[in-house]
Structure formats: C-alpha cells, structure tokens
Amino acid sequence: MAKGIFVYRVAKWLKSPTPYLMLVGFALFFGAWFLLSEVFKVWRFASLPGPRQVLVEWFNPNPVYGMSLYTPDYYMHVWMSVRRVLYAFVISTALGVPFGLFLGWSKMFREFTFPVFETLRPIPVLAWVPLAIVMFKSDETPVIFLTTLASFYATALNTMLGVRSIDEAYPRAAACLGASKWQIFRHIIIPGALPFIFTGLQISVGVAWFSLVAAEMVSGEYGLGYLINSSYVNVQYPIIIIAMMSVGIVGYASSALVRLAGDYLMQWRVRELALAGGG
C-alpha cells in the first residue's frame, strides 16, 4: 500500500510542472552566479570563485587544491559531519520528544520547567562555545553538544505544541471507552502529537547542520565546517564553496529522510492529504 502511494506520487510529481520549475530555478541561480563572477567579473563578485571553477575542482581527479570527489579526505570530512549530526539528532530526539510530551501533558511539569527552557532557548549556540570546550575535554563531544542544543529546543517545543494542539474530544473519547491515563498517553497523545513532532524533527535536523558548521569552525579537526574555516585560512576559496554546497546537499537529503520517515509512520495523514488534493 505504502509503496503504491509512493510510486503514484512520484508519477504525479513528474507530470506536474514542479520538477521542471525546480530545474529552471537552479539554472537561473547558477547562470547568474556564472555571469557575475566569471563572465562580467562584477565588482565584489570578481574575487568569488565561479561555478565553473568550483565544479571543475570538485570533479577533478587531480585537484589543484587537493580536495575533490576523488580524494578520500573529502569523504572523511563529509562523513565526520554526517556522523556528528546523526549523534546530535538521535540525542536531541531521544531527549526532546519525551521532554516535549511531558511539557504538553503535565501542567505542573510545564510550570516548573518551561520558564527555564524559554530563558535558555534564545541563547545562541555560539555563546555556548567556550563553556562547551571547558566542559568537554575531548575534540568530539563539544561539537556534538553544541549541535544537539539547538535541535533539542526545536524538537521539544514542537512536540509540546503538538500535544497542546490535540482536540480535547480525543482524550475524552478514549476515557469514555475505558482507557487508563497511561493508555490515553500511548494511544492518543503520542500519535496525536506526531504531525507536530515531525515538523519539529525537520526543523531540528536543519538546525543541527546550522549549528554543526558553526561548532566545527571553532573546534574539531575534521568536518565540513572545519574544512570551510581551514580553506579560508589557507586561501583555497573553491574548497570553501565545495564544502558549502556539500552541506546544502547533505542537509537537504537528511531533512528529506526525516520527511519520508514521517510519511511512513503517518499513513493516515498521507492518505487524508492525498484525498484533500494536497500532499
């Protein structure tokens, strides 16, 4: 059933203007960049590597600056970043979802934890960098800690909103049908909050990449953020852009994976949206 819907959606997508508009959008973006930096060398864009230069370097078996799809080092950097995001995402989800569920479920729990939570939340990840380095001695843990932080807020907050958005009639109906408090939590609160939880997880994985790069620029000795910073120091500008584009691609793929996982867990919602003509 799930597979049928997937194939149907892909076929429908290919028939719609969406993929072609997407291609036009990318073409315009790269075209503008190419013209500004390589053809007309417009002021300020002149010092920027052009897309041709970047792509040639990226796909070069003998890269000028020593970094391309053909060098194992490149994959090492990508893998280190992916691994850190994975750790951070798993930790922030494992902590954030239960925390958010309890925030939404229990008024008392909310009243004594939410103000603290809301005070910590606006503090930017970068402000935590010195403390993270002092607190965690190794190279790896401060980066993972910093990456987890912002993700945790996004997941917890959305999960809480998810619980609060559940129509009062559902837990009432369940109570009528003889469900205990715990059964209501399991059968009503968790699945009822799931759409919001997955919205939160998509934001969370995006924010994880955001703060990962920031954390890697300050600490660590591998990873795409580190690569951006070290290439800047070593005046290897095309590599900066290769690393930036790599973050974009891997980041996009990771939120697409989260979305797919959500669709898989919420077939009811996929089918409802398909009927409503959306999706």
Binding site: D167, H187, W268
Partner: peptide, 8 residues
C-alpha cells in the same frame, strides 16, 4: 464534531 481517532 466526531472523535474517531484519525490515526487508527
């Protein structure tokens, strides 16, 4: 407004 659980 009905309270069938949409996820079941």
């Amino acid at each position: 407004n009905g309270a069938l659980f949409p996820w079941k």
